[in-house]
């Protein structure tokens, strides 16, 4: 029996050489780092704040701060958890000023379609209709999770990070992270259970 059903690949860490060069002020190297992580960081933040505009602003702050503090990073092997921890700090800073919205509203245009560029989806109109409805249901299921569960769920189920890496990012123990991921999965399953049969 195959343990995993998931097809999302783990994106992996960027070469340490890029980080070393960026530390010396090499902006080309830093742009490579940005290109490598921007999508992951942006989508992590987006799932946490449910707003494309805010996600872009917070991603911008994250990458500026990362560059500023790159000289203080002691172990380049820990760059990825460090980067996500900075992104997470900005998310929680934003939570302090405004509590998280339950669902994304600004991500949809007047026809109820996402306004932003999405990953390539070529589907028939029927599939698109089902897909949009499912996306809404799934988005609401994730958005309804309390932040503590949502962050570990997004990092685990969507970003495919290891539990150890997630524990480093959220600064909690491994057993605590494992329990929270399981609880989050059960809650999401409860919310999407009725749609399991209609999956395209």
């Amino acid at each position: 029996m195959s343990p995993t059903s998931t097809g999302a690949p783990s994106d992996g860490a960027c070469p340490a050489e890029w980080i070393e060069k960026a530390r010396q002020g090499d902006l080309v190297a830093y742009q490579r780092i940005y290109d490598h992580y921007a999508r992951r960081v942006l989508n992590f933040i987006y799932r946490m704040v449910n707003s494309v505009e805010e996600a872009e602003d917070l991603a911008q702050e994250t990458f500026v701060t990362v560059y500023q503090k790159l000289g203080t990073l002691k172990d380049v092997e820990r760059f990825e958890p460090w980067l996500f921890r900075i992104a997470r700090n900005y998310v929680y800073q934003r939570y302090r000023s405004r509590p998280p919205a339950a669902t994304s509203l600004d991500a949809l245009d007047d026809d109820g379609r996402p306004e932003t560029q999405l990953a390539d989806v070529r589907k028939t109109p029927e599939e698109s209709f089902d897909s949009l409805e499912l996306e809404k249901v799934v988005g609401e299921a994730i958005g309804a999770l309390p932040p503590k569960y949502r962050e570990v769920f997004v990092l685990s189920a969507l970003r495919r990070m290891s539990y150890a890496a997630i524990a480093r990012i959220v600064r909690r123990s491994l057993p605590s992270v494992k329990t929270d991921i399981h609880r989050a999965r059960l809650e999401v399953r409860r919310r999407v259970k009725g749609y399991l049969g209609v999956m395209p």
Partner: peptide, 12 residues
């Protein structure tokens, strides 16, 4: 449920 979530989470 994990499959359904992964295939229905649009990325920006």
């Amino acid at each position: 449920a994990a499959r359904l979530v992964e295939s229905n989470v649009p990325e920006i």
